[in-house]
Design a binder for these strands. Structure first.
Length: 286
DNA sequence: GATTCGTGGTT
DNA sequence: TAACCAAGAAT
């Protein structure tokens, strides 16, 4: 793993996408919003929602002043709408506990609702140019291939992985921050999960997976991700009705969104934990 | 540590 | 076409 860093930094300099949250003028809030939206959602779908979000709520205090339901509505169809609730809660916490300024320490960031290890490290690195180990699915895949020689990393982050990432991280904080985003970008654009573009990879000559003949993944199969007919889909349908309605709706409107009454009612109840509120005999976003 | 939390593009 | 996957977090 001796010299992955320089070639990847050079590659990034030449090939990085121009994303709004990466521009020098982007605020830490813009970075934080992008990280919430990018949790399990592709960049192309995040772009328009992120832009509208920052136009409407340029600072944490602007969002914190709104009802949480407005965040859920503006979230649109990005998926996992509880992220919208958590982002709203994070904005409130930033105003309450941090003077309205997105905190710059890993620990303070990690304490915000919806901010786990990845997001805390990413915001500290990308918004504040700190030296942080940023381990997302892209970085894990790139290092897994380039260093460990495996097609896909383990289910959860191992100590060995973290050790490799720490060892590679440049000592100089701004360079480390650029390195972190550069490895992620390489994973997103070249060292992709399927059909990786190895001929265009800046480290193809030192890649352990390449040297081993690109052996196929032989670990435990990942659980199947079904969606059609699940409670998750049902909840999505119910929430879509509420997002698209200006105010509250009758239960009839929700009933029309899903055929199976038993499943529909179960899902509605599960949404009442914060994503939906009952208003008399009607339902609305919070 | 395994499960659960949406949605749509791609192949 | 059905399967896979996309800058994770909370429980």
């Amino acid at each position: 793993m001796s010299n992955l860093v320089d070639p990847i930094l050079r590659w990034y300099d030449a090939h990085a996408r121009d994303l709004p949250w990466r521009r020098p003028t982007a605020s830490a809030w813009s970075v934080l919003v992008s990280e919430f939206m990018l949790q399990q959602t592709p960049v192309s779908r995040v772009l328009p929602v992120h832009e509208a979000w920052l136009d409407r709520w340029p600072a944490p205090a602007d969002l914190a002043a709104e009802a949480s339901g407005e965040a859920v509505r503006a979230w649109g169809r990005l998926g996992y709408p509880r992220r919208a609730l958590r982002l709203h809660a994070a904005a409130v916490a930033i105003v309450t506990d941090h003077g309205g300024v997105v905190p710059d320490s890993y620990d303070a960031l990690r304490g915000l609702p919806g901010v786990g290890d990845y997001t805390a490290a990413a915001v500290a690195a990308f918004a504040y140019r700190q030296r942080q180990v940023v381990l997302d699915t892209n970085v894990r895949r790139v290092l897994g291939r380039a260093v460990a020689g495996v097609e896909f990393p383990a289910r959860s982050v191992t100590k060995a992985e973290r050790g490799v990432a720490e060892a590679l991280l440049p000592a100089d904080p701004p360079t480390a921050a650029t390195w972190s985003v550069a490895v992620m970008e390489l994973g997103a654009l070249v060292c992709t999960a399927d059909r990786p573009k190895c001929p265009f990879c800046p480290v193809v000559e030192t890649c352990a997976w390449q040297a081993a003949g690109r052996p196929a993944y032989d670990g435990p199969p990942r659980p199947l991700q079904t969606y059609a007919g699940t409670d998750r889909q049902c909840r999505g349908r119910l929430l879509a009705v509420l997002r698209d309605a200006p105010g509250s709706v009758t239960k009839d409107r929700l009933d029309a969104a899903w055929d199976l009454a038993e499943q529909r009612d179960r899902c509605l109840v599960s949404l009442l934990d914060g994503l939906v509120v009952a208003v008399g005999d009607r339902y609305a976003l919070p």
